[in-house]
Write a protein that binds this DNA or RNA. Structure first.
Lengths: 342, 342
DNA sequence: CTGTTAGCGCGTTCAC
DNA sequence: GTGAACGCGCTAACAG
């Protein structure tokens, strides 16, 4: 066995008494048949030496690496992880490996990430990033690799896009609350900045309220990390408005916000359901354990990740269709926090 | 600009009017100075063309890829993700990229993972895997790459190892409970199988109880996914024993178990603190929101990941010391579930 | 059908 | 100090 520990194509060629090219053909162009005699000899040698081609050398020569670059805005975010999980699985199943780059919320590093990954000749990108300062388009386009956007779209970037169907999910959510008798709604979101998903959900909330006017009134509150006083105040104001017999409910834009609202409720010593209705986007495992259970909108995170990877791999296999848009449905998980109180 | 979109070393050489070798030396052997004149010319060309060497070609030729393979038993586990996060950051800071492989709890795939990553010439491995069927040693040794184990040690594998100091953490936990007047203790863990961390914690629990005997009595219960009845029964039995004035408490082996126990408490309609004391390993964000707040042992997950990566990178830089063992201290987060009830 | 040759982009001898 | 030549492992273009 060679010092490197791995057999090379040359070793196989020698062992089989043929040339490297023949071995290469045996591997890549299975369809064009080579004389059965030689084929079996090669096959034997390749098995005997436990040979498997070096992806790096293949990448260098043939240009494709069977690597997929996954760039995540913030790996702290459970949503990102859930997507990561689905995507990683789909990639593995298709014979691709995932190279991971976490931006740690520093959106300026996006370019750096793309370049670093492109250096390794990744075949394509899965992007779950902020997408502000849309020079990203150029970067990706520059390297000529296909990309899929997850959850957050970049303005002006015509690539495939996979996400929760925010509009439908919000419609279901608000419908459920209105039907349950809630009349004063407050949508709590993280600061929108340029993040498309936050903007979409906020817009959808506005549309839903408008659709139910004048029976229903709605407001939006941007919750900033660390500024818990403001959130407490917003919740108090909401309950004030609810005083004249109109029941009030909060809709949380994601799991982070849900956590903040739950903490605020604990500070105020209010009970979900009894004092304030609630539905939150994302369905963390602990949702059923808080108070009477938190109603949520469960995202099909695994499917989203899988769909993103599948989309990308189809492109890698040559699909040349117009940019697609996959909006996957969420599932409303009704628990105690949005049940009518007897 | 070339069709590939990226400048090669040849382009730089031509632009600077020198040979490729000179450019290569400028990059790698900065110490040995080449005539200042040429140096500046090369530097200019390299900047003008925005040249950066191809890691793949480097890997192929020089043998090192600046890639680190990270194998995770189950990316669903928040602990794995937390480690992943710390490791990824440390790797990035040191100029390495992470290649991710998720076993999805199929421990047989460990070999496959190692081979796949080795194919890409990863410089080393970070392993957070089950480590059963310890043929892994061979596999890693075979490829001659250094590795560092996180959280779970593989029997007979002499590599660096990073983990929580399970023994100390358990000592603190039990000490806290005993001090708080709890006398009947139940340690709930996932089935131990071959997982070293679970065995260590269980053993440490036994040792702690022994140290406090005969004032304190302790039992161990293995909670299997889906078999919630058995868990409910174990908790009832615990409270039975506590009847004669001895207060009872549960210690949960990790966040998964904590979740199961919390669900059981909800089913039984018992309150943490009032009906049963509780401390759980791992400190999920929602711990403070359940009942009066769940006491926990917070693992320094970020440091663990960072330490693992740092260890490995030191090895890659040539450190040739005996296998090290880093046991990082946990932090006891005291909340309502283990407070003495008035 | 198969072997020979020429690169992919880079590091590293070896001469000059 | 610097350039030419070779090899890393593999694929693709030509021959035969």
């Amino acid at each position: 066995m060679k010092p490197t520990g791995r057999a090379t194509i040359a070793d196989v060629a020698e062992a089989a008494g043929v040339s490297k090219a023949t071995v290469s053909r045996f591997l890549n162009h299975r369809e064009r048949l080579l004389s059965p005699d030689i084929a079996t000899r090669v096959e034997a040698a390749i098995a005997k030496l436990a040979y498997s081609p070096s992806p790096m050398a293949q990448a260098l020569s043939h240009g494709r690496s069977r690597l997929i670059g996954l760039i995540v805005a913030d790996i702290t975010n459970p949503y990102s992880v859930a997507v990561l999980r689905g995507a990683e699985k789909a990639c593995q199943d298709a014979g691709y490996l995932v190279m991971l780059f976490n931006l740690g919320n520093e959106s300026e590093r996006e370019r750096e990430a793309i370049n670093a990954l492109a250096g390794y000749q990744v075949d394509g990108f899965i992007l779950n990033t902020l997408g502000r300062g849309s020079n990203v388009v150029d970067a990706v386009t520059l390297h000529g690799k296909p990309a899929v956007l997850v959850d957050r779209r970049h303005t002006g970037m015509h690539t495939d896009f996979v996400s929760l169907d925010n509009h439908a999910a919000m419609r279901d959510t608000c419908g459920h609350l209105v039907e349950g008798g809630y009349r004063e709604l407050l949508y709590v979101t993280e600061p929108q900045k340029g993040v498309s998903s936050r903007r979409e959900r906020t817009a959808a909330f506005g549309a839903c309220v408008a659709a139910h006017e004048p029976r229903v009134a709605g407001e939006v509150f941007e919750s900033v990390e660390g500024e818990s006083d403001a959130l407490d105040e917003a919740l108090r104001a909401l309950r004030q408005r609810a005083k004249r017999g109109r029941r009030a409910a909060v809709v949380a834009g994601n799991a982070v916000v849900t956590l903040r609202v739950a903490q605020a409720m604990a500070r105020l010593d209010w009970q979900f359901g009894a004092d304030l209705g609630f539905v939150g986007f994302d369905d963390p495992e602990w949702a059923s354990l808080i108070g009477p259970g938190l109603s949520t909108v469960a995202q099909p995170t695994d499917e989203i990740g899988r769909a993103a990877a599948t989309c990308l791999i189809e492109r890698l296999r040559g699909l040349d269709a117009a940019p697609r848009q996959l909006l996957l449905p969420g599932e409303l998980m009704v628990r105690g926090s949005s049940q009518a109180q007897p």
